[in-house]
Design a protein around this nucleic acid. Sequence first.
DNA 1: TACCATGGATAAGCTCAGCTTATGCATGAT
DNA 2: ATCATGCATAAGCTGAGCTTATCCATGGTA
Lengths: 300, 300
Amino acid sequence: MTELPPLSALRAFEAAARHMSFTRAADDLGMTQAAVSYQIKLLEEKLGFPLFMRKPRKIELTAKGHQLSGRLICAFSDLRNAVDSVREQSESVLTISCNTTFAMQWLAARLSSFEQRHPKLMVRIVPYDTSEVPQFLDSDIAVTACHPAPNDWVQHDIVSVHFTPMLSPALLKDKPALKTPADLLSLPLIGPHDPWWALWFAEAGMPDTDLSHLTSSRMGSQALEGNRALAGQGVGILTPFFYRQHLDAGLLIQPFEQVTEITEQSWALAYPQSSSSNPRIRQFRSWLADELKNDGVELG
Amino acid sequence: MTELPPLSALRAFEAAARHMSFTRAADDLGMTQAAVSYQIKLLEEKLGFPLFMRKPRKIELTAKGHQLSGRLICAFSDLRNAVDSVREQSESVLTISCNTTFAMQWLAARLSSFEQRHPKLMVRIVPYDTSEVPQFLDSDIAVTACHPAPNDWVQHDIVSVHFTPMLSPALLKDKPALKTPADLLSLPLIGPHDPWWALWFAEAGMPDTDLSHLTSSRMGSQALEGNRALAGQGVGILTPFFYRQHLDAGLLIQPFEQVTEITEQSWALAYPQSSSSNPRIRQFRSWLADELKNDGVELG
DNA sequence: TACCATGGATAAGCTCAGCTTATGCATGAT
DNA sequence: ATCATGCATAAGCTGAGCTTATCCATGGTA
């Protein structure tokens, strides 16, 4: 494959051929006439033949110049279109990799407000369950409780990772009120092997509470545990932030004040450093900040 | 029309996408891996979204990266093809703008030797008559007696512009031999208003010879005058260099030793400065030099 | 026919994009 | 464990690619 001449020279020639004028080409490219003249001379030297005939107040393409110009104009146009279209596409679609729980419990309900604010933006949510680092590398933006985001990612904290037992009032019907954390053990716990239970009990002064005898169907996603709790199937260990509305409506109750926080982690909005100038992402970030403000939370 | 990102960044990305490796792309482009990494990072920042996902020992295109890469690879390929084809074409055809006289009297007869030496090169001769600066700007190379070539043209002198009266021996049949220049006036002169006549007579010691009464059909091209002289229609003022063979064969005779030279002009090979690196032109120049050496002339 | 106005060429000089070299880091292979 | 591979990053250099300023030729115009 033959070595290509300097691209800037080709670009200058393409513009000059398009405008049939060095001066106008220079305007087009945002540079001076001298620069265009220089680049074209350079290209002619590299190629070994002249491309333009310089006539008094105009320029004319030589035969070879003409031949070259046609194809270059096409190629550059393709180039611009390629870049433009990927830019546009990236301005019209926003792909959000989002932890399932956050997506279901928080995002889904509010997304219509975002779509109202930015009607031209199509939002695509890619939920994920795994606790490990998700493959959100291929999405524009991610909402995650992921520990250390890749270090060239920007991260804005949303809320801490926190949790406390919750249950449906229906579950307590015909049962004594819960007075101490230990009373919980008389009720079915949802996802008892979830380490959150252990942490919460430990903080409640019951460090070695043995939960191993309880049925376990560790279901990863808090959203599902939340649904089971709502359905009165047991006590879930849930994040109050995600269930504010259910709590307010009395669909769920939080028997104890104590909320355990994991300080090393945090729910966060994250995106690649390289995307920080992306308008869609700024839009989403600022919308999210506003939404959170309504909840009395500041985006970090 | 949206501003294009830096072309060098696009080129680096194109190569990286083609090879799916920064290291190999760098080899391809003749630069270092660090440079490719830098350029791609730059492009990602300009575009506002990532193009590659960096995995441990490999890279993967993001969705947008994939979309962009396909079209860029095409566009760059077009670009390369455009340049290559005009380069190739310019290696297979040689267009020579040539003064008609030189073309007919000198070039035409020897061209077969050039074509033999460079069988792959197609030679196209564009003859011109005008004494003014010809439009040979659109040819690869020119042979001309043109005074000052455009000053960004390279010029190799061939022979001086020189001339002397010549005639067919047939014209002198049944006539007295020519003893002095003045004797010429008893014969028909071909192109008597040609300034060359005046110059020659002046140098012959007859500065004010009045030629105005003689028939005049100034025909510009020496070749035609030469033909008329050969046909015995009169005395032509011709360049011996072009008629060596006719003189040797006795088809023309040169009655006087005196040959007038115009020192400010010269027959020359000329081509644009920008073409000096063109292999076809080197080939032609070196062939011409060899051919001239056979005539005992050195190419300047 | 003199004189702008236009459009390209050229010279000199500056500046930073775009490279290099050197090194670090993570990971898959042995 | 250790090595090999492949990308990221830092620091520093240099010349491509610009700018500014000026010149030149010519076509249009009064």
